[in-house]
Design a protein around this nucleic acid. Structure first.
Lengths: 120, 120
DNA sequence: TCAATATCTCAAGAGTTATTGATTTATTGA
DNA sequence: TCAATAAATCAATAACTCTTGAGATATTGA
C-alpha cells in the first residue's frame, strides 16, 4: 500500500453509497453478493449507478468481482482493508505510539474474543 | 464516530496535500506546527491554499488548532484518528475476524516495541 | 500608531465526480 | 435462435472541489 493506493482507497470510502457498499460486503463475508442484490440494498439504486460505484471500488482495490452465470458477484478485498489500516497506523506510530495504542486496544477487543490465542 | 464523521474524515484523507499534512502533523507530535511551516513543507503552498486544506482538516476533526502569537499552530487530533480506525474495524469484524486480525498484528508490532509493557 | 508578519476570507474559473436515461453486451433457458 | 435477465457503457448535465490572486483581519514590536 503506497500513497497513491491509499489516496484512491480513501476517495472510494469518502462517498456515502460506496462506504455502505463496502460495509455491506464486509459483513456479507468472502462469498460476496451479486450486483443486483447490492443495488436493492442501496434503496434500489439504478444499474448504471451501481456499476459506476462498484467499478470505482474495484479500481481502488477495496472489492473484487467474479462472474457467476448472469450475475457479477462482488466481495470485500479483506487484505486491502487491512493494508489501508496498516498504512494509516504506520504513519501514526512514527515516534508517537500513544496515537495508535487506543486503536490497538479497540481492535484487539473486537477481533480477539477474550481468549488467549495471541499466537495466531 | 458515526457514518457522517467517517465520510468527512475519509474525504479529508483522500486529497494528496491533506494526507501529507496529516502525516506530517502526526510525526510532529502533540505540539504541532505553525501553518507557515506546514506550507513550506508542502512545496511552498500559498497561504490561501494551506488555509483551505487546514480548515477542511479541522472541520473533519482530524486536526486541531490554537493561536500562539502571530502563528496558528496545527496539531494532529490523535483520538479522531484512532476513532476512524475503530469505525472501519468495527464494521470489518461483524462476523469476520479474519479481516482485522492481520491489521491487529501489524499495529501491535508497530506500537508495542517488543517489550512487556502491555499494561500501558 | 505604524509597519511588518502570519493567517484567513472571498470570488472566479478550471477540473473532477455523481446521477440519469438510453443503449449495448453477456448469459441463460425455452 | 429468440426472449428474458443481469450488468456495463455512453453522453449529457448538475454538483462539488481545488487553485489562484486580491484583499481583509489579527498580532507584535518599534
Amino acid at each position: 500500500m503506497d500513497e497513491k493506493q491509499a489516496l484512491s482507497a480513501f476517495a472510494a470510502l469518502s462517498q456515502e453509497t460506496r462506504l455502505r457498499i463496502v460495509r455491506l460486503l464486509v459483513t456479507a463475508g468472502p462469498e460476496g453478493m451479486p450486483a443486483g442484490a447490492i443495488g436493492e440494498a442501496m434503496d434500489g439504486a439504478s444499474s448504471s449507478r451501481m456499476s459506476f460505484h462498484l467499478s470505482h471500488l474495484e479500481q481502488s482495490g477495496l472489492v473484487a468481482s467474479r462472474r457467476e452465470g448472469r450475475s457479477i458477484i462482488y466481495s470485500a478485498a479483506y487484505p486491502a482493508l487491512s493494508g489501508l489500516i496498516e498504512f494509516l497506523m504506520r504513519d501514526c506510530c512514527q515516534g508517537h505510539p500513544e496515537v495508535c495504542t487506543p486503536a490497538v486496544a479497540a481492535l484487539a477487543a473486537c477481533c480477539v474474543p477474550a481468549k488467549d490465542n495471541a499466537h495466531a
